[in-house]
């Protein structure tokens, strides 16, 4: 049944540090590479070498510009976005076939592709755009939190994390149990004031985002240097006068 479990034993998820992400898209590429060749239908591309290429991705990196209200300097924030494995996942309860479910043991939200009829209602129910209907396979694709890596004992231990986390060269992505207050990820969220995306939607995401730390601002710190000279002297003063005279 596509009802949500009242409680999950673990809350596996990602913590994404917006201060550290450099927007290199390595997580996007490694996600696609791993997930197109492992669990479920491949992530297809359409018109891959033509003028309008598009395809299915489980993780995409947006870039936003944030401008402080007090007129300070704008800053660029790279913003990776994938399934947040919500505790109140609306995508699960709308599913008519029972294909979408949330696992009781670790809270991962998955799609059973053998049951999915490709109606797309779960993608409509998700506020975050985390689900994409594969155009060739006709079934719904979403982040599996690399379920085929994290429990895979055939892989070396350091590889038993989601592909996006493993590949991130900046260390902006962290994986762990957010239901355990003593886990590294929970401590990170507590320390940095991790936030939920669109809390008003009531989805209670498991994944958290660490907001960029406050930037120094020139106006607040008084760091602006005094001008060393208002009036030109020497050769420049002569040049100034000479040009005035012409």
């Amino acid at each position: 049944m596509t009802t949500l479990p009242a409680k999950t034993e673990k809350k596996l998820g990602l913590v994404i540090d917006l201060d550290t992400c450099v927007g290199c898209h390595a997580c996007v590429i490694n996600c696609k590479e791993w997930n197109t060749s492992n669990y479920g239908a491949p992530l297809s591309d359409v018109d891959a070498y033509g003028p309008e290429p598009e395809g299915t991705f489980l993780n995409r990196v947006h870039a936003f510009e944030v401008t402080p209200e007090d007129g300070g300097c704008a800053q660029t924030v790279h913003f990776p976005k994938s399934c947040l494995h919500c505790e109140d996942a609306p995508c699960v309860t709308v599913c008519p076939t029972g294909a979408s479910y949330k696992r009781t043991e670790d809270g991962i939200v998955l799609v059973n592709e053998n049951d999915c009829m490709g109606c797309g209602l779960c993608a409509w129910a998700c506020p975050y755009g985390a689900r994409e209907l594969d155009q060739l396979a006709g079934v719904m694709k979403k982040c599996t939190l690399c379920i085929d890596r994290i429990y895979n004992e055939n892989l070396p231990e350091e590889d038993r994390v989601p592909a996006c986390v493993r590949t991130c060269p900046a260390g902006a992505r962290h994986f762990g149990d957010l239901g355990d207050p003593d886990s590294e990820v929970s401590k990170l969220v507590a320390e940095r004031g991790g936030i939920d995306l669109m809390p008003e939607q009531g989805t209670r995401p498991v994944n958290k985002y660490l907001p960029p730390r406050p930037r120094d601002s020139a106006a607040a710190s008084g760091a602006r240097l005094e001008p060393v000279a208002e009036e030109p002297k020497g050769f420049l003063a002569w040049l100034d006068k000479a040009l005035e005279a012409i």
Partner: peptide
């Protein structure tokens, strides 16, 4: 609210993914 960046300031899309 979608990006959680509202506490810093006004948000606009700089580059789509």
């Amino acid at each position: 609210s979608a990006t959680g960046l509202g506490r810093i300031g006004k948000v606009r899309l700089l580059e789509p993914p």
